[in-house]
Write a protein that binds this DNA or RNA. Structure first.
Lengths: 330, 330
DNA sequence: GGTCATCATGTAATCGTTTACATGGCCGAA
DNA sequence: TTCGGCCATGTAAACGATTACATGATGACC
């Protein structure tokens, strides 16, 4: 109980071989009931814990999956991770969470180093070659890579922004701006495209001043508010590529003396926890984050444990609009 | 390059022994420059990646530390984790993040299973016996356990709440309520004590209706708002045990037609990212989260790599008050 | 020139499991 | 009774690295 007990210690105490101890613990049906009890008693008495390095080495699997998040500080991801953990837990797998922003140099050792059997990748900015080199199953969540044939779970971002634009148009807004995400990001591109499509569909025109730069963060939303406020004939409605930037935008408008939704209607994208409690509560496109995590984890677990081949396409889960207080009739 | 290459493959390609390969990679100074180059070329050619299960097993260390967080969805923790990762990265250690809420049953196998060499524990509600059984160095962050002699890093919660109460008192508030945290939590207790102390010091009395129940969450803050609004002669200032509950409180007040800070002044605790962007921006007690993470990680790394003994007391880092728009003169 | 330290490298034991294969006991069928 | 099959268990060979110890070369010093 004091120092680390090994399986041989348990075997000695129980009066059986190490093989029997191993089987009693991982395949209880394969040993006699009496022996099993003896082993379990010995385990309790010695305080034995399996050494997972040894186990992983011998069995050539880690019984763990890794969730690779672009930025842990972004609250959007936590709900996804929570449901991944539920699924993995039920399957007897451990979840390791890493931040790809920090793991930079270590990134290319990921699968091959044997620390995890599969990866849930929430970062679409990684090099496709690096990912291909991991050598373990990978499922993308929300974002995706340019590489074709990679399994993934996410929403239809074009359609999502369409809901937002449609909502503002229905409220009588004619000049609708778009506060975008970081250039080069697949979500930014898709949502930007959704804006263009939806404006055309609604018969509205996009003026140069209707495109506001951002990068999903609150700070970028605040900066965009200054640009917007300084523009003549500025838009009366703003669709944002993320909730955080929407909140930053509204917040900075407030400091400039402009009220939402009286002076400007704002729609977000994501539906993070804070949006419902903001003043005003944010109208936004709700993403089913729990479903993303659950479904992605289920795909990975099925591939790992039952050999079910991973799909070669993204699974699309629909988003829907949540109308709250940040949008009003023009 | 295709299938997994082992160290023996690299050795063969480079024309040296496995021992030399191992040394060339982990102790570059101990091999000749020419040999080192040969090995590195062979590594590149074979696509070799060290198998960490084998390495961990043989060297009896995991080169990893675990951060155990009570709830990943709480944005308070992300900044702490980020600075932990910086320190660990510089020391060549991997950071594994786990949610103690989910890991429940697996919790007791933590250190002993050899997956990590040390633990940063952000959850003060764990059983002290379980923690003692881990058998690896543990440093508490923010919260702490009842067990004495355990190293930790955090702030003086009593003093922190004192700043908040003092601020409201200085603004002329005489009836100051306290929106507490979950019962039994060490932070709740300390902050509750800070409220009692500070009220006494300011010569103010605490009436029964000045104690509002909460659990750090936005929802609990919202519920407390109803209680507060329904109370006759309710307090004019509210000190909250967390930012989230403060934001929930203000948000719900707004829905009830009561404005902050005109109808009530509110102070939070934590200074999470959203607080600065709330409307109104939240006056709150700022916790140096980056410093918490950095200092705790440094203690652990020093203990792990240089054998520096861990302190037997908590390291206190001062908090300070950030005055924003949610408090006003009575 | 002999001795010894130093250095680069090789040989092989070792870390703690899992698991393929072997063994022996027991039981039912022929 | 004999044989085959099944079951519970034991024996020992992996898994893939690190590292204590051994070896041989080199060069400094007296």
């Amino acid at each position: 109980m004091e120092t680390k007990a090994r399986i041989a210690d348990v075997a000695r105490v129980a009066g059986v071989s190490t093989a029997t101890v191993s089987r009693a613990l991982s395949l209880p049906d394969r040993v006699g009931a009496e022996t099993r009890d003896k082993v379990l008693r010995a385990v309790a008495q010695t305080g034995y814990r399996v050494n997972s390095a040894a186990r992983d080495l011998r069995s050539r699997r880690a019984r763990a999956i890794t969730v690779l998040v672009p930025n842990l500080a972004n609250t959007f991801f936590s709900r996804i991770i929570a449901s991944v953990q539920e699924v993995a837990d039920a399957a007897g797998l451990t979840v390791q969470i890493s931040d790809s922003m920090v793991e930079g140099p270590r990134l290319h050792t990921f699968g091959r180093d044997g620390r995890s059997d599969g990866i849930l990748l929430l970062d679409g900015t990684l090099d496709a070659q690096t990912v291909a080199g991991w050598g373990v199953p990978v499922v993308m969540v929300c974002e995706w890579l340019d590489a074709p044939g990679m399994p993934g779970v996410g929403t239809d971002n074009v359609a999502g922004i369409g809901l937002a634009v449609g909502h503002l148009a229905a409220l009588g807004h004619r000049d609708i701006a778009f506060l975008g995400g970081p250039a080069g990001n697949v979500l930014s591109d898709a949502r930007g495209q959704g804006y263009v499509d939806a404006m055309a569909r609604s018969g509205l025109t996009i003026r140069p001043q209707d495109r506001l730069d951002g990068d999903f963060t609150m700070e970028s939303g605040a900066r965009a508010a200054h640009v917007w406020a300084a523009t003549p004939e500025s838009a009366t409605g703003v669709v944002c590529a993320s909730d955080e930037s929407a909140l930053g935008f509204i917040s900075e408008c407030d400091r400039l003396g402009l009220r939402c939704p009286d002076d400007v209607s704002v729609v977000g994208f994501d539906d993070i926890e804070f949006s419902d409690r903001f003043i005003p509560p944010l109208t936004t496109v709700h993403q089913p984050r729990a479903a993303f995590g659950r479904q992605a984890a289920e795909l990975l677990v099925a591939a790992l444990q039952n050999g079910v081949p991973l799909p070669t396409q993204r699974t699309i889960i629909a988003s829907h609009l949540v109308v709250r207080g940040s949008t009003a009739r023009r």
